[in-house]
Amino acid sequence: MDFIHTTVAVGKYLVSPLIRHTDDGDFAASVSIRSGQGRGTHDRVMRFTPRFDSHALAHSYATEQGLGWVRERTGSRVVVT
């Protein structure tokens, strides 16, 4: 089982897509959204049920879901290029 991730910092949030290559040969996506510092750190993890044919598709989906969560809470327009 391998987890491959990158992080995107958005204000006080750190969005980390987590992609796993499954035994069936497809890719599973989840995302971690961390906020706070030190003992006040809070980490939300969302796991998604769709499976993807490629790492890139799973990564894109997880990133967009995480950034969408941040957008809902901050009202900001988050764009990753």
Rank of each mutant, 00 (worst) to 15 (best):
R34H: 04
I4A: 12
V70K: 00
A56L: 09
V45Y: 15
S30N: 05
R34V: 10
Y13W: 14
K12G: 05
D26A: 06
H55D: 13
Y13L: 09
Q37I: 08
I4Y: 04
I33H: 02
I33C: 03
V8M: 07
G66D: 02
H5V: 07
R71L: 05
H21A: 07
G66A: 03
I19F: 02
R34N: 04
T22D: 10
T22R: 14
V79E: 15
T6A: 04
T6N: 10
I33T: 03
L57M: 13
G40V: 01
L14G: 01
R34W: 01
A9R: 12
G25R: 06
S16K: 07
V15A: 03
V45Q: 13
Y61C: 05
A29T: 05
P50H: 11
T6S: 12
D43A: 12
Y13R: 09
G40Q: 10
H59P: 00
R47D: 15
D53S: 15
A28C: 08
G38E: 09
D24Y: 10
S54Y: 11
R20E: 13
V15W: 01
G75N: 05
H42S: 14
W69S: 03
H42M: 14
F27M: 04
H42C: 08
V78L: 04
G75C: 10
G66V: 02
I33N: 01
A9Y: 06
Q65P: 00
A56K: 09
P17M: 11
G75A: 05
G66Q: 03
V31S: 02
G40H: 14
H59D: 04
Q65E: 14
P50Y: 13
G75V: 11
S30A: 15
V8L: 10
M1P: 05
T63G: 01
E64A: 12
V78N: 04
D43S: 11
R20C: 11
G68Q: 14
V10T: 08
D53H: 12
Y13S: 05
S35A: 07
M46A: 14
G75K: 05
V31A: 03
G36F: 06
R71D: 03
H21C: 03
D2R: 08
A58T: 09
E64Q: 14
Y13G: 06
S60P: 00
D24T: 11
R71P: 00
M46T: 08
G11I: 06
H5E: 13
L67F: 05
G11S: 09
R73K: 15
D26Q: 11
S32I: 01
V70Q: 02
V31E: 01
W69P: 00
S30Y: 04
V8H: 11
P50V: 13
I19W: 02
R71E: 11
H5K: 13
F27Q: 02
M46D: 15
R47N: 13
V78Q: 06
I4T: 06
T22H: 08
S60E: 04
Q65M: 12
V79H: 08
H55E: 14
R51D: 09
L67W: 00
G25T: 13
Q65H: 09
V78Y: 03
D24V: 05
T22W: 05
R71T: 13
A56M: 02
I19S: 01
L67Y: 00
G66C: 04
Q65V: 09
A56F: 08
S76H: 07
R34T: 10
H59A: 06
R71Q: 11
R47G: 11
V79P: 00
M1W: 10
H42Y: 10
T7V: 11
G68H: 09
S32G: 07
